[in-house]
Design a protein around this nucleic acid. Structure first.
Length: 495
RNA sequence: GGCGCGGUGGCCGAGGGGUUAGGCGGCGGCCUGCAAAGCCGUGUACACCGGUUCGAAUCCGGUCCGCGCCUCCA
């Protein structure tokens, strides 16, 4: 594969490791997707921008990538396994729509948001509800192998059967036993045991339930990821991504049931993104305090400015979202585009490493290698942006080479380097308060005053237009004007 | 309480034993009749206390502070 070896931080082992696929030239990736009972906030989006970056880098280096992102459209519970209410059912009651409508609606919005931040569509988007049969089969196989036991609450996985349970999260099982668990399920053998099948309550009917060898109920949360990933990627595949919150429970249990099922090692590389903070608390779908991509757009920001902001920090670092930070990213991105557009026209296609390499000669190739060095070191997109910024200021790089290099950067970063104009990042203008002809007449008057060196009158006209929301700029090629942007961009957040 | 991750110049954020991260803002300059925009220049920072070392922001130990997970959550 092209360029330097790709080094990634593997949560399994907590160290940087060189990526080596199970099958040469092919990378199979599973990305933990959302539960679609609510809008995905901008913190959620980071997980997919991260996974997208991984995918783009792999493809850029010449791997054939297959990526699966699941859609969890089965409700799971709001608290412990036999407590609380189903989140999808809750949303259904709240919004007066069927659970199926709820799932469909939030799935659509989610995919729309991903498209806006240029996260490429997954190769497959499997839905949990379409794989319940396979999940039942999987659970039955585990039961046959002696890894499961039945309780009134459903079918449970016996984590004590695995000697290395918790290896991903470095769980301290002794410590866990002492930890106060909420509402323990009667009969559970170990605190870490989890449901493969959740039996429906006998006194109430669930909106989503299926028949199974263990009675009516719904599949355990972790089951779908094991089942759907194996179905679409093969029993063993290369990479599994998700947020750090999944490490201790969800991914730990996925590994447990999958390795029990296979009788051996499952996925070699586990990658996790850190959280985005928002002021005092993290963003949480259940606790509120979230921002949506549409909130950012309402404040006049282009979705790709949010992507630009995200790429400015490493995916494994907790960072804070602030409006100031987003504004900073917007300005930086705009200036970058301005410098690029001065030298190379918009258009063209993103270029993979090999394609770019073939079109460059010795000195320009060093810049390509700079990009490769950055992304090959655990996807250091921030460093890639720094390299790009330097490049955009380097007058020694011929325009032809620059165009090739920018196309290579765009292939990995996807921040609009090829197709956006700087103005595309500006907030939308507000309503013009006077006729366009009027503005132009006033500007003509001003131009005349300037020509006769009556600057007092000229400035008076400019001030007046400014009060009406029209910004006037004198440039070497003449005077231009625009309606001042509509929004004060810092209405929310803590700054 | 257990496990995990951090504390970098006004702000955000890279880096990671001796050579510039970068961005935003500020300041100075160029340009401009003046502005605006743009461009150029400008910051010797790395929580605290010890230790290792010729040399530590970077390694080790401790302290303080923050965050995440342990319960649905990216």
């Amino acid at each position: 594969m092209a360029g330097l070896p790709l080094r990634l931080f593997n949560t399994l082992g907590r160290e940087l490791q060189e990526f080596a696929p199970l099958e040469p030239g092919r990378a199979r990736v599973y990305t933990c997707g959302p539960t679609v009972y609510a809008y995905q906030h901008i913190g959620n989006l980071r997980a997919y921008v991260f996974a997208d970056t991984l995918r783009r880098v792999l493809e850029w280096k010449g791997y054939e990538v297959v990526q699966v992102i699941n859609i969890t459209d089965v409700g799971h519970l709001t608290s412990d396994m036999d407590e609380g209410e189903d989140k999808l059912e809750l949303a259904s009651q709240r919004e007066g729509r069927s659970v199926w409508d709820i799932a469909a609606h939030y799935t659509d919005v989610f995919m729309g948001d991903l498209a806006k931040v240029r996260v490429r569509p997954a190769t497959v988007w499997p839905r949990a509800t379409e794989h319940v049969e396979e999940m039942i089969e999987f659970a039955r196989a585990l039961e046959e192998k002696g890894y499961a036991y039945r309780l009134e609450a459903g079918l449970f996985f016996d984590t004590s059967k695995l000697s290395d349970y918790g290896k991903l999260a470095l769980l301290d099982l002794e410590g866990l036993q002492e930890g106060a668990r909420v509402a323990p399920i009667p009969g559970k053998r170990n605190p870490t045991d989890f449901a493969l099948w959740r039996a429906s309550p006998t006194d109430a009917e669930r909106l989503m339930e299926w028949d199974s060898p263990w009675g009516k109920g719904a599949p355990g949360w972790h089951l779908e990821c094991s089942v759907m990933s194996m179905k679409y990627l093969g029993e063993r595949f290369d990479l599994h991504t998700g947020g750090v919150d999944h490490i201790p429970v969800h991914h730990t249990n996925e590994i447990a049931q999958s390795e029990a099922y296979l009788g051996g090692a499952w996925v070699p590389y586990w990658l996790h993104n850190e959280f985005i903070g928002l002021g005092e608390t993290k963003m949480s779908k259940s606790k509120g305090g979230t921002l949506l991509l549409s909130d950012l757009e309402r404040q006049g920001f282009h979705p790709l400015s949010y992507r630009f902001l995200l790429l400015g920090s490493h995916y494994r670092n907790q960072t804070e979202f602030t409006w100031r930070g987003l504004e900073g990213a917007r300005v930086a991105q705009r200036r970058l585009l301005e410098r690029l557009r001065e030298r190379i026209p918009a258009g063209g296609e993103p270029l993979a490493y090999d394609q770019a390499w073939a079109r460059l000669d010795g000195s320009a190739r060093a810049h390509l290698e700079g990009l490769d060095a950055a992304v090959s070191a655990d996807l250091k997109t921030a460093q890639a942006l720094a390299v790009l910024t330097q490049l955009s200021r380097d007058a020694d790089v011929p325009a032809g080479d620059l165009a090739v290099l920018v196309a290579a950067f765009e292939a990995v970063l996807a921040v609009g380097l090829l197709d956006l104009a700087p103005e595309d990042l500006d907030p939308p203008a507000r309503e013009l308060m006077l006729e366009v002809g009027e503005v132009e007449r006033l500007l003509a008057d001003r131009e005349e005053a300037r020509r006769s060196r009556d600057f007092a009158s000229a400035d008076e006209i400019r001030d007046m237009l400014d009060r009406l929301g029209v910004e006037v700029q004198d440039t070497p090629t003449g005077t231009t004007w625009r309606v001042r942007p509509a929004v004060g961009q810092r209405e929310a957040g803590r700054d």
